[in-house]
């Protein structure tokens, strides 16, 4: 089975939120409550246990190079679980609830998760969250159930402008690179890919859901240089060794020294 994923081209997004609604409908997720945020047209705020696709709306006092609209532009970007090649959530899950599927996606088995919440602090993108009722971790499944039936994910299917492209990762990567070149040619020099492979995002080994952006990742609420925590854990394990050794030494010392007096 070739690895599947998303290439979300934010320059094609029109902020219609069809992806958000399609995801909720397919996965039968409830609403997040009704709250006017005053944050442009974004009233669902962030990804979470009940929002697996989230469209960000960025009003910025910076023009796009291909646009004549004064010193202003409005960016949209549909965010989702990245299905990281090295997934913090998966590597940290103590129960093995999170698995890598035959599509190379990262899937939480709802019948295994015991709600320890460790994945929540281990996702460098703030994606996965615990449900507030039964506390199981909950996130995008890459529509595993649909993929198994040879259908594409609901969000990609609903996207009217093909901003969300679903397919074999190899193809998507090639397509994305060509797209960036094309945009550069058209004058949109700001365009670049975020997380398309291990090279561009070594910390995560590349994202199976990667993006084309036109501003700093921070603008879209994406970390500029994310890293799967396990990659850094070696340092901590080493320190633990030191700590244990020190503690053992201290204990032995205390016994010997204490006794001598």
């Amino acid at each position: 089975m070739p690895a599947k994923g998303f290439f979300t081209d934010t320059t094609l997004c029109i902020g219609c939120k069809a992806c958000e609604v399609a995801c909720k409908q397919w996965n039968q997720l409830p609403d997040d409550g009704f709250f006017f945020t005053g944050m442009s047209y974004d009233n669902t705020v962030a990804l979470g246990a009940s929002t697996w696709r989230h469209v960000a709306f960025i009003e910025r006092p910076v023009p796009l190079q291909t646009q004549d609209a004064g010193a202003f532009s409005w960016l949209f970007s549909s965010d989702v679980c990245k299905h990281c090649a090295r997934a913090g959530c998966l590597e940290s899950c103590p129960t093995g609830a999170i698995v890598r599927t035959e599509f190379e996606s990262v899937y939480v088995q709802p019948d295994v998760c015991n709600g320890c919440g460790y994945c929540v602090v281990n996702c460098p993108f703030g994606v996965i969250d615990r449900r507030s009722d039964d506390n199981r971790a909950w996130k995008c499944t890459l529509c595993y159930d649909r993929l198994r039936e040879d259908m594409q994910p609901a969000c990609a299917k609903a996207c009217p402008t093909e901003s969300i492209k679903f397919g074999d990762l190899d193809h998507l990567r090639a397509e994305a690179r060509a797209r960036v070149e094309d945009l550069h040619e058209k004058g949109l020099r700001e365009a670049y890919l975020y997380g398309e492979d291990e090279h561009s995002q070594p910390g995560t080994g590349g994202l199976n859901a990667f993006f084309l952006l036109v501003d700093k990742p921070e603008v879209y609420n994406l970390p500029p240089d994310p890293v799967v925590p396990t990659k850094k854990a070696k340092d901590a394990w080493t320190s633990m060794g030191v700590a244990a050794a020190g503690m053992a030494l201290a204990a032995v010392g205390a016994v010997l020294w204490g006794k001598e007096r």
Binding site: L12, I14, G15, Q67, D68, A69, F72, W74, L75, F76
Partner: peptide, 12 residues
């Protein structure tokens, strides 16, 4: 208004 259409247009 500058709308979602304007956002993806070349000229608003």
């Amino acid at each position: 208004r500058f709308t979602r259409t304007s956002a993806v247009a070349n000229i608003h």
